[in-house]
Amino acid sequence: MKELLIIAIGSAFVNNVVLSQFLGLCPFLGVSKKTKTAGGMGAAVIFVITVSSLITSVIHNFILVPTKMEYLDTIVFILVIAALVQLVEMILKKNSPALYESLGVYLPLITTNCAVLGVAIINVQNSYSILMSVVNGLATAIGFTIAIVIMAGIREKIEYNDIPESLRGMPIVLIIAGLMSIAFFGFSGLL
């Protein structure tokens, strides 16, 4: 239990996936204009990363390791993630139109979100068990959601501020991300 808690806090705050590991930066910079869309993206990422950590970890532990084909990790994982995202999209569309309405638009964006593949690879490299992988995936995704929602909140506020012209757009967002990253750096004393 204690071990799981350490993994969870470690990946949600201390090694925040966006602000200290730089995974999933594209959606973090691209889909963070409004809190609402950022929240939707976060929810979709939580869902996909948790399910994909479970599945990739099962595949790794029960298929690739017994057959000594660990070298196929990257290829298998990326295909599984791409197929999984498609599958989730289809299931949601058929069975839960309401959820599909709110998450559906973000799902295709997630296949190439490097956080998803990143978590799967981190799970394998640290040789986490299946339960640990799921906890790690969930916590990482929660960390991503926290970061993107805070970022969207700040960007909504600065919209009407008088920013020097050459800092508008990309630079100011990167500076905000840097300041957030310093704030999250403070968590490193936690563990």
Binding site: G30, L109, L167
Partner: peptide, 25 residues
């Protein structure tokens, strides 16, 4: 990027926008 923007502005061009692809390749 800010330095680049400064140079672009001096040449009468617009500042750089955020990546518009929303993470979709």
């Amino acid at each position: 990027i800010a330095i680049q923007n400064k140079i672009r502005l001096n040449h009468g061009k617009k500042v750089k926008e955020l990546p518009s692809c929303n993470g979709k390749c």
